[in-house]
Design a protein around this nucleic acid. Structure first.
Lengths: 133, 133
DNA sequence: TTTTACTGTTTACAAATGTAAACCATCAGG
DNA sequence: CCTGATGGTTTACATTTGTAAACAGTAAAA
């Protein structure tokens, strides 16, 4: 949805055109989305020109980090490793990324546990299906 | 929400009790949630006993993988590496996870690009804020 | 057996979201 | 000056979500 402008700044028309390249939405629909995002103060409107431009209020990386953390909070601790392994396998990475990640792994290895405990429930339940390493 | 039973199978009362440990919800609210999940066929009801038990229809790992992929699809390619690096840094990992990840990194390194291109827009826009390595 | 707990089902209602038509202002053409 | 395109604002309506009270069936307690 909002990914399109989180990138930079764009006029209404630019947003509509770009959005329609990937979604089968009417212009009205997109305008509504823009309005709701401004209402929610996720984007701001620059009305200094006759044709308005919209700029992001929250930076993409901040929003992304936030959502990523919220998502991981919803995942069973015991499964996070497996999940991250799969992501590392499939998502695009640059050489630098790989280097950085390796450095972190090296740092963490010493203190890493053999098994990560699941904390899904309150009365810690060892029979969690996710603890299968 | 549904994390609680994705774990295994539980009776209504168990779900309500467990849910109330982490959320300030009334029993009614939780029952509604259960109903909506069954409507949506994410959990199934075993009515063979007088007290029903609820079992997951979709496995937690499948749902989690699915959501993780959907989330990553919404992230700028050029930022995925940074994001994964941060996650690797903060999320719990076992020694085995670390080993596995390292193995994958080794495999990928040769073919990894120096820079990952952003594909947020259609007319590829090089000025994407996320391309900052 | 009458009452009381439990447990599950219905109904309720506001807010958010998905989707879009209708409307209004204004500037460029005719 | 009237007209139409273009961009922005209002209104609209169905569905989903958040939150929960009210109700009904039944088994246990009194």
């Amino acid at each position: 949805m909002r990914i399109i402008w989180t990138k930079k700044r764009a006029t209404g028309r630019e947003i509509v055109e770009e959005a329609q390249l990937s979604h089968d939405w009417s212009a009205s629909t997109i305008k509504t989305l823009i309005r709701r995002l401004t209402d929610k103060e996720m984007i701001a409107v620059d009305k200094s020109e006759k044709v308005f431009t919209y700029v992001p209020v929250v930076a993409e990386n901040e929003a992304t980090d936030y959502n990523a953390n919220r998502f991981f909070d919803s995942v069973c601790d015991a499964y996070k490793g497996t999940l991250l392994t799969a992501l590392i396998k499939d998502e695009p990475l640059s050489k630098t990324d790989i280097q950085n990640i390796r450095a972190i792994l090296d740092e963490r290895e010493a203190s890493a546990p053999d098994q990560v405990a699941c904390h899904c429930l309150h009365e810690d339940d060892d029979s969690c299906a996710m603890v299968h390493h």
